[in-house]
Simulated assay, not measured.
Amino acid sequence: MSQPARTAERPSGHAHPAFGSSLPADDFKALFRGHPGGVAVITADAGDGPVALTATSVSSVSADPPLLIFSISAQSSAAAVLTRAETMVVHLLDAHDLDIAKLGATSGIDRFAETHRYSRLVTGEPVYRHVRAWARCAVIERMDAGGSTVIAAHALQSHVERDTAAGTSGDPLVYHNRSWHRLGDHSRIQ
C-alpha cells in the first residue's frame, strides 16, 4: 500500500527560502532507508595524520573525464581533513571487505592502528590493502549542502584487486535499512 505524498511546513531555518516547506527529516530518512547504496571507504591525509570514513554516497559522474562524487557529513570525525585534502583514495568494497567498511563506520577509534591493514601510495595517501578496488582522486570541487559537503573528484590512478566481469554479479557489499548485505546470483531477479 502506498503512502500519501507528504510535505510539511518547517521552521524558517530548515527550508530553502524559495520553497517555503521541506520534507521532515524522519520522512526523508524513511525514503532512503529502503534505497540500498554501494559501500565505499574514503581515506585522506591533509598533513595531520590519516583519516577514513565509510560512505554510501559515491557515484560515478563521467567516464571521460573520469569523475565521481560523494558527500561527507560535517559531523564525521574525518570531515575536517576531507574538506582540506587535495587528494584522497576512494575504496570500492565488496562483501570480502566488510571489516574495512565497519572500521570506517566506527566512531571513536583509530582506523589506522592496525598498520598491517594499510600502506601509503608514493604520493602519500593512505590506502587499505586487498580491497576490491580503489581510485586515487584529486578534488576538483566542493559544495556545501545542508550539514554535508559534496565533493567532486577526478580519478587519477586505480587498482582493481577483484574484478567483476561484465554480466556477472560479483560479490558487492551494499548498505540497506541499517544493515550490510551481500549481493550475488542469489539476489538476481532478472
Rank of each mutant, 00 (worst) to 15 (best):
M1Q: 05
P4K: 04
R6V: 14
R6N: 04
A8E: 13
R10T: 10
P11C: 01
S12E: 13
S12M: 03
S12L: 09
G13F: 14
H14S: 10
A15W: 00
A15K: 07
H16F: 06
H16A: 15
P17N: 04
A18K: 07
F19S: 11
P24M: 01
P24K: 01
A25H: 11
D26E: 15
D26H: 14
D26S: 15
D27R: 11
F32C: 10
R33Q: 12
G34D: 03
G34M: 08
H35R: 12
H35N: 07
P36S: 10
G37E: 05
V39E: 08
V39N: 05
V39L: 08
V41W: 06
V41M: 08
V41R: 00
I42F: 02
A44M: 05
D45P: 01
G47R: 05
D48S: 15
G49K: 06
A52I: 04
T54E: 08
T54K: 04
S57A: 11
S57I: 05
S62N: 14
D64S: 13
P65G: 10
P65H: 06
L68D: 02
L68E: 04
S76V: 03
A78M: 06
A79R: 04
A80V: 07
V81I: 11
V81Q: 03
T83E: 11
R84P: 02
T87P: 01
M88W: 05
H91A: 12
L92P: 00
D94F: 05
D94H: 05
H96G: 14
H96P: 00
D99M: 04
D99W: 03
D99C: 01
I100F: 09
K102Y: 01
I109C: 07
I109P: 05
D110S: 06
A113D: 10
H116N: 08
H116F: 07
H116R: 11
H116K: 09
R117F: 12
Y118G: 01
Y118D: 09
R120I: 07
L121H: 08
V122L: 10
V122N: 11
G124H: 07
E125K: 02
E125N: 09
P126G: 11
P126V: 10
P126Q: 09
Y128L: 13
Y128C: 10
Y128A: 13
H130Y: 06
W134I: 03
R136P: 03
R136I: 05
R136E: 15
R136K: 13
C137A: 15
E141I: 00
D144K: 14
D144M: 11
G147C: 02
S148I: 00
S148H: 15
S148G: 05
T149L: 10
I151L: 13
I151N: 01
A152H: 00
A155H: 01
V160P: 07
E161H: 15
D163L: 10
A165L: 14
A166S: 09
G167C: 07
T168R: 08
L173V: 10
V174A: 10
H176F: 15
R178F: 04
W180T: 08
W180S: 12
H181F: 13
H181P: 01
L183M: 14
G184F: 00
D185L: 00
H186L: 00
S187T: 15
S187R: 08
R188N: 04
